[in-house]
Design a protein around this nucleic acid. Structure first.
Lengths: 243, 243
DNA sequence: CGCCTATTTGATCTGATTCAAACAATGTGG
DNA sequence: CCACATTGTTTGAATCAGATCAAATAGGCG
């Protein structure tokens, strides 16, 4: 099996145990692998993609642009994610997907994915479940933007990112590679870049985090957790009880 | 077929044309119909439901509670919706679902739904698609909370609700039954009740809407659309191109 | 080294919150 | 069917979290 495929398989196995036959079918998916530079769009609002993209290496993010330079970021994606899986059943993209860093992605035709999910309903259900967790994360961000302070929101986002990267083995202890600018953090949380900066300074001043040269380190996990009112239940790492 | 079932069938047929056999299977689903009072929870955060609920009549909404009375509302649901369809593949609820008005709902065992989607993959894909549209609405609300003014957000929400109700035949022209309090509108948009009130007064003063005794009427659709920067693409009423 | 991008700082402004109280509507029991 | 209680809406005043504007540093990188 392609080694780049592993984070993806690992993620699926986090959703439910795969049979050999299922693994085989996954490995047989036709992949068209491409390298991308940073800040390149993979799909755009209005597109009708005929394939999904699997992120093998690097970071991606989804966003929508409004006039006057306003931007809302919806999600940040890491290796093993299929950020536009939704295009399999929503023909027209309603937002953009772009790279954050130089990345390698594999494109998989919708046709092959549809054939796969029909042949292996459990894989289809795992994909579905993946998009449901995606939506659960949106809900949690909504709670933040609607009802939490800027301070709490930033802390919450950092908790989420570190935890997600830990789970797929992309963290070294409590430190992660995080190629986000402060402006992007603001655009994800509905804050100005200036205020985002001040909040981050406070989090550093309180000894909760350090963040230099694109490496974020959580110095006080419990403190950060409390600052962000963070409860990871919404990430649905529980994998049981899927009949 | 049960007449209450019609909004649901109509909604599915909006997603893709149903064969007779598929309609037959849908009609054979075992339903346990129950009447509920207003302000009753149907499922709560932390529950592990063994069934989904189909809203036959009335209004429901999904929400999460934080301490100090903070609440974030995620969605408003109308007849024909299955607001907790996600529980089919996310075993533990991460938010609450409650009635807004006296309602009639039909409960359908997960087992039956899973059997149905395996027997009729296209129905499964339509269900999946439904949850994807749900997520698209979350994204749009995120844009509002993150990057739009209170005025624009309120206008946008009203556009969305009226349009959705028009599409399933629950509107009379440009007027809809809308049992939301101003406080709930605020909790959906991340605003205080007081400010929500002032924004609504402005929308009325500008002649865009009237809203009395739970009936919302859009007096100037184009004006309201512009006020809310509303573009319905994210609701994905387009139904084509699902291979 | 020098350019470009990202972070930081300070000052000012404002959209929205909060608190408190009055008022209107709705529903309920006698 | 009215009196009363409850819930929802409206008003005003004071306050604040976060935005905006503008300029200064600091990093990264060819």
């Amino acid at each position: 099996m392609h080694p780049d495929f592993l984070p993806f398989i690992r993620k699926l196995e986090g959703l439910f145990p795969l049979s050999d036959e299922e693994k085989q079918s996954l490995a047989e998916l036709p992949l068209q692998v491409r390298g991308l530079r940073a800040d390149q769009d993979i799909v755009r609002e209005g597109d009708r993609p005929s394939q999904c993209c699997l992120l093998l290496e690097g970071f991606a993010y989804r966003y929508k642009l409004l006039d006057e330079g306003r931007r809302q970021i919806f999600s940040v994606h890491i290796a093993g994610d299929m950020p536009d899986l939704l295009s399999l059943h929503l023909p027209i993209m309603d937002h953009n997907l772009g790279t954050l860093t130089p990345s390698r992605v594999a494109f998989i035709p919708h046709q092959s994915l549809r054939a796969l999910t029909r042949r292996h309903p459990r894989i289809g259900e795992a994909f579905w479940r993946d998009t449901l967790v995606d939506a659960a994360v949106f809900r949690e961000w909504m709670v933040g933007m609607g009802r939490r302070s800027a301070y709490s929101r930033v802390a919450h986002l950092l908790c989420e990112l570190v935890l997600r990267m830990q789970v797929v083995g992309l963290a070294q202890g409590t430190a992660v590679q995080l190629p986000l600018t402060q402006e992007m953090v603001g655009d994800a949380l509905g804050l100005s870049a200036v205020h985002t900066n001040r909040v981050l300074q406070r989090l550093r001043g309180e000894g909760l985090i350090t963040w230099q040269s694109k490496v974020l380190t959580v110095e006080d996990w419990d403190g950060l957790r409390r600052a962000g009112e963070f409860d990871p239940a919404y990430l649905h790492f529980d994998r049981d009880a899927v009949a």
